[in-house]
Each structure stands twice: as C-alpha cells, then as structure tokens.
Amino acid sequence: MTIEVLRTLPNPPPSQEAFGALYATIQQFYAHQMQLFDDHDAERWAGTFTEDAVFCRAHARPAGARPCLARGERAPQQGPAGAQR
C-alpha cells in the first residue's frame, strides 16, 4: 500500500486522546469501506475514494477515477484456478 502524506503532525503533536479518537475514526472508515467491498456495492465502494483515485491490484492494470473503480469492481474477477469471485 502506498500512502501520500498530505500534511505533517502539528507541533506539539496531538494528545493521546486526540490521536486515539482519530485512529478509531480511521478504523471505522476502513471497516465501512471493506463492508461495501465485501457486499459488492461497487458504486458506493468507489465513492469512498477521491475523484482522481488510482487503485492497483496485483497482476492487473491500474484503474483510475471513481467510475473506472466501480466498473472494475462490478466486472467478474477470476481468482485462483479460474474460480470467480
């Protein structure tokens, strides 16, 4: 996974309580995003990304922008030994 740092932490750094609250918010976001993915709700899943997002899967061409992300997720994916996801 690649993460682009958009800003640095303030000086002084946030309190442990503020950091813990931010961490919990991020975990809740990822849980929601993965639930959409698991439910094959392609449009809502793609909507969790920025407009100019690029999503790269192993052994596949990168998909860019929300409509492409959703279209790529709606298409049947071949898994190991030809199994469909």
Rank of each mutant, 00 (worst) to 15 (best):
I26S: 11
Q28N: 13
E17R: 05
T25E: 14
N11A: 09
Q27I: 08
Q16F: 15
L6C: 01
F29V: 13
Q27L: 12
Q28C: 11
A21D: 05
Y23S: 06
P13Q: 06
G20D: 04
A24S: 03
R7T: 03
A18L: 03
E4M: 11
S15M: 02
Y23R: 08
A18Y: 02
Y30A: 09
Y23M: 06
T25C: 11
Q28F: 12
I26H: 12
P13G: 00
P13F: 04
S15L: 06
F19Y: 08
M1Q: 10
M1F: 15
P14K: 00
P14A: 00
F29E: 12
L6R: 04
A18G: 01
Y23C: 07
Q27W: 05
V5S: 09
T2E: 12
T2A: 15
S15N: 04
A21G: 02
P14V: 01
N11C: 09
E4D: 12
Y30Q: 09
I26C: 12
P12E: 01
I3D: 09
M1W: 12
Q27C: 09
N11E: 09
V5L: 15
T2G: 11
E17M: 05
N11W: 08
Y30W: 15
E17L: 09
R7W: 08
Q28K: 13
S15Q: 01
E17Q: 08
P13E: 04
Q28V: 10
F19L: 06
S15I: 01
T25S: 14
P10R: 02
G20L: 05
Y30P: 02
G20M: 02
Q27S: 10
T2S: 15
P13D: 01
I26V: 15
G20A: 02
L6W: 00
Q16D: 14
E4T: 12
I3C: 13
T8I: 11
L22F: 12
A21V: 05
Q27T: 07
P10D: 08
A18V: 03
P10F: 00
F29N: 12
F29G: 08
T25R: 10
F29P: 02
I26T: 13
G20C: 05
A24P: 00
P10Q: 03
A18K: 06
L6H: 00
I26D: 09
F19R: 04
L22D: 06
M1G: 11
E17F: 07
E4Q: 10
I3L: 15
T8Y: 08
Q28D: 13
Y23E: 07
L22G: 08
I3A: 12
P13W: 06
F19Q: 02
L22Q: 10
P12Q: 03
T25A: 13
R7I: 04
T25Q: 14
Y30I: 11
P14N: 01
T2F: 14
Q27Y: 07
P14I: 04
V5A: 11
I3M: 15
V5D: 06
T8K: 07
P14C: 03
N11G: 07
T8V: 12
M1R: 11
T25F: 14
L22T: 08
T2C: 14
T25L: 14
P13C: 05
P10N: 05
P10C: 03
I3Y: 14
T25H: 11
T8H: 07
I3W: 13
N11F: 08
A18C: 03
M1Y: 13
P13I: 02
S15T: 00
T25P: 05
